[in-house]
């Protein structure tokens, strides 16, 4: 069941567009914000609420990079793997993160602390390599700084 808070937030979005269906992405964002990820049940609940098929909701949910169809850890690390960060050595950072956290791209720490994901260009190529943890952007990162950065996230 969608919570009252979730429903209210979705209703607000419905009020801004010509038909309910147009709020699928917003609804997915809202539910993910409350639950951390989008489960099969969440897909069905959103579909019910908007009056469309679960398959249609899932086709949207699986299309976008930042809608998580699997559970993620408490913090999500998005490491930029695009061209400027490639030139400036994101691969070294990736190796160091793998070594420190014992996880690779697409995996979550057993204690649920971090999920590590590759991410397309974060738009700060003049400060490559870059990564984002939750909503915090880190630029010009060196391997030496990683411990201090990771420490901030319990």
């Amino acid at each position: 069941m969608l919570s009252t808070t979730e429903k209210e937030a979705i209703d607000h979005e419905i009020g801004l567009v010509p038909h309910k269906r147009a709020t699928v992405i917003e609804a997915l964002k809202i539910v993910q914000q409350h639950r951390g990820w989008i489960s099969d049940d969440s897909v069905e609940e959103i579909a019910d609420y908007l009056g469309i098929s679960p398959a249609e909701v899932d086709s949207v949910a699986t299309f976008y990079n930042l809608i998580f169809r699997k559970p993620v850890g408490r913090h999500v690390i998005l490491l930029c793997d695009s061209i400027s960060c490639y030139v400036m050595g994101y691969k070294g950072l990736y190796a160091a993160l793998q070594h420190k956290l014992h996880i690779s791209f697409g995996q979550t720490c057993p204690d649920n602390r971090f999920t590590l994901l590759p991410n397309a260009c974060l738009g700060c190529c003049d400060h490559a390599p870059a990564m984002m943890i939750d909503k915090d952007l880190y630029r010009d990162i060196t391997i030496e700084q990683l411990d201090d950065i990771l420490k901030k996230y319990a």
Partner: peptide, 11 residues
Amino acid sequence: DEMEPGTFKDR
């Protein structure tokens, strides 16, 4: 929706 790799001007 600036996402062309290597592009950071709109930011």
